[in-house]
Nucleic acid binder design. Structure first.
Lengths: 117, 117
DNA sequence: GGTTCAAATAGATGGCTGTCGATCTGGAAC
DNA sequence: GTTCCAGATCGACAGCCATCTATTTGAACC
């Protein structure tokens, strides 16, 4: 977790050839790394990744009752995965009467996508 | 895990308006989702994400002894994270004498990157 | 051989995660 | 009000994960 970036401590290297003199720094700082890792972690499950895929393909909102039968999982488990995605800021939800609809939050994946490119 | 795609079971809907008649399918199939989720999961830790960032910026190989002091973590912990990245196929390693060098495997992130775009 | 050093592995531990069945919530319709 | 249904939440449990210290491996040098 803790990433200590202030001048990487010199590994004392008395004699012999140094293994690698120029110390290297991450261009991506701690906070950005934590933001992107949070997104990546939420996508790090095949079910959640497919959920996001479905929601992205259907630019509008998709009813939970449509999502559940796509997987060989119980309704509470799918609900749990949707909650994880919502906590990561990837999707949003909206109740309409008896049903709940989920949708992808635009730009939620943009930072990670840009870094990967 | 198991994603059952053969004709999503009709949720019986006797009377009243249907919540959502056209059932929706993921365009990303199970195997692709599992491949990409595996990559995303490996990137789902800030330390690993920064490690990949450093390795990507330095197109050549980077010595482990340079990576360890970048983080406020023990050497075995950094070694563990590198092992996770290697198991995911994101990085490769190479020993040279006393030291070990890591490098990013080209195209390892490409599928996920393409899907995110 | 013996010493030294870089890196990997082993083992332990506390915390998180994916899954389930059971229950709760709250809107719709009667 | 009562009933019914969609969805969320709860509680439990097994498995995984990030981290540490201690140890092992293996290459280099004396």
């Amino acid at each position: 977790m803790a990433v200590d970036l202030e001048l990487a401590p010199k590994t004392k290297r008395p004699a012999g050839e140094p293994c690698c003199e120029p110390v290297v720094y991450p261009d991506v700082e701690r906070e950005q790394a934590e933001r992107m890792a949070k997104i990546a972690k939420a996508l790090g499950d095949p079910v959640r990744l497919q959920l996001v895929d479905v929601l992205r393909k259907h630019a509008g909102k998709v009813c939970v009752c449509e999502l559940v039968p796509l997987f060989d999982l119980s309704q509470p488990t799918v609900s749990h995965h949707l909650k994880v995605l919502r906590a990561a800021g990837i999707v949003g939800s909206e109740r309409q009467g008896l049903w709940a609809y989920y949708y992808v939050i635009p730009d939620a994946l943009e930072e990670l996508s840009a870094w990967l490119s």
